[in-house]
């Protein structure tokens, strides 16, 4: 049993279910990646695990306790951090203020965590007084990840962090994510760039039409000829 696990999740928006008894899990220090074709329910799985969707069936367990009934804000208090795919920074606020807002629920001194984030993303330190809306796409993603890290989460969930950034920026972002994982944080992310993502993944979940199609280590999935043919373009 993993540290964070969504078990047999079945849910959707309004009418039809998008996820059908789908399970996803991750352990501390590990990177788990959810991949799959468009409309497979990758982002839905993330939203379900973060409490933004009501589960029809199944449950979400964190460190052995059932958190299925908690609101997203309460999950933040329980050590989960989430980076949405779009609109994931406060555009009119400076980088520093973005990080401060990330730490809104903390009442203790946040300067240490902020220093860590600046160590991880040095470019943000230079631009700390600049509105986040004026940054480039890759820098914005760094702000978004940094914001989520400010609560010192035990789990960081990322919804397509590399959407719309150049390959070079993507590689750098993945390097940073590995660095974050090495500090002992569990990382669960959804990725469009399946090959590159599985390359850095300890665990991979391939979803097809809301169901678990393949689940294995990243390397094993990359090596699996069937997965390669169907999802990784040969």
């Amino acid at each position: 049993m993993s540290f964070l696990i969504g078990e047999n999740m079945t849910c959707g928006y309004g009418g039809a279910d998008i996820l059908h008894s789908c399970s996803v899990g991750v352990d501390p220090g590990e990177i788990a990646v959810v991949v799959g074709p468009n409309g497979a329910g990758k982002s839905t799985a993330m939203k379900a695990m973060f409490g933004m969707l009501h589960l029809g069936e199944g449950r979400v367990m964190l460190d052995g306790t059932d958190i299925s009934q908690l609101k997203p804000q309460e999950r933040v208090l329980h050590g989960m951090g989430f980076v949405p795919q779009n609109n994931n920074v406060f555009t009119s606020m400076t980088v520093e203020e973005n990080l401060e807002m990330g730490a809104f629920i903390r009442r203790d001194d946040i300067s240490g965590t902020m220093a860590q984030v600046f160590d991880l993303f040095p470019v943000l330190k230079d631009k700390r007084r600049q509105p986040a809306g004026e940054l480039s796409g890759g820098q914005r993603q760094q702000v978004a990840v940094g914001r989520a890290l400010m609560t010192q989460p035990r789990i960081l969930m990322l919804d397509e962090p590399t959407a719309g950034v150049s390959p070079i920026v993507m590689d750098e972002l993945f390097d940073r994510i590995i660095q974050v994982a090495q500090t002992g944080i569990a990382i669960l992310m959804v990725e469009q760039n399946a090959k590159q993502a599985l390359n850095i993944a300890d665990k991979g979940f391939v979803l097809v039409q809301g169901r678990n199609a393949y689940t294995d280590t990243g390397a094993a999935l990359l090596a699996d000829p069937e997965v390669r043919r169907a999802f990784l373009g040969g």
């Binding site: 949405p84 406060f90 606020m93 990330g102």
Partner: peptide, 14 residues
């Protein structure tokens, strides 16, 4: 200001 700028993210930030 955060809430005014991005309601969803503000909620996510607690």
């Amino acid at each position: 200001r955060a809430y005014s700028n991005n309601e969803d993210l503000a909620l996510l930030s607690g």
